[in-house]
Amino acid sequence: MAVVTAPKPSEELISIDKTLDQLNTITLRIARSNPAEGHETTYSEFKVPVKKWTTVLEAILYVKQNLDHAVAVRYSCRQASCGSCGMKINGKPSLACYTKVSELHSNVITVEPMNNFPIIRDLAVDFKQLISNHKKMKPFIIREDSEVTPESKEFIQTPQDVEKYLQFSYCIKCGLCNAACPTMATDTSFIGPQGLAQAYRYVADNRDKGKEDRLKIVDDSHGIWRCHFAGSCSHVCPKGVDPAMAIQLLRGYLLGFQK
């Protein structure tokens, strides 16, 4: 009987393996606040052991499990699909589950709640305004014959038709774009890049007949005209939605550049 022996891993591979396994200790600074109780923001510092692949969310959960279970954080899928764990990591809005500690190149990591959202407690923020603005954009296909009946036919779209809106439909409503937007920083009534990008997602869909309705909603002093194309929304989007592009293309309809 032939015996197959696995080749011995090279020394280089062994050393890479050891590096990956190596435990490093970082200082995790977590912003703590409870505005409803009138508590000002303070920072709690924790020493957290991390490996090369440890994410910021895992580091926060380590704190919750071992050091301070009272840290408030919202999370769910841990794979950048649910959009729950958006927060400011070392000053930049990011998803905690999608940001590896190692890619921050710092032994001190500060996590804070996202700006431009009211704080519920610690890292958890209130999404009421984001969801309300999203709903205002009528995020559904508008057409009279949308009900499926025995006589109705499938609405066929070409791949080119789908490509016009597909990337904008990947929005997970994490709110990072709204947190990075300079207009959101000062205008409490601004629709925000998330809502405007979603308006474009449906306007660009050739099954939809609600273009005029949506253009009327965004054509407002706190609507599309308040975007100055700073591009910060697209800079932080973790799903490649590119809200800045959607907003400029949507404005193209209002300015007559797009039909």
Partner: peptide
């Protein structure tokens, strides 16, 4: 850019 010129085309991210 505000008119949608030079901002690229939508595509599969």
């Amino acid at each position: 850019g505000h008119g949608g010129i030079g901002v690229g085309k939508p595509g599969q991210p």
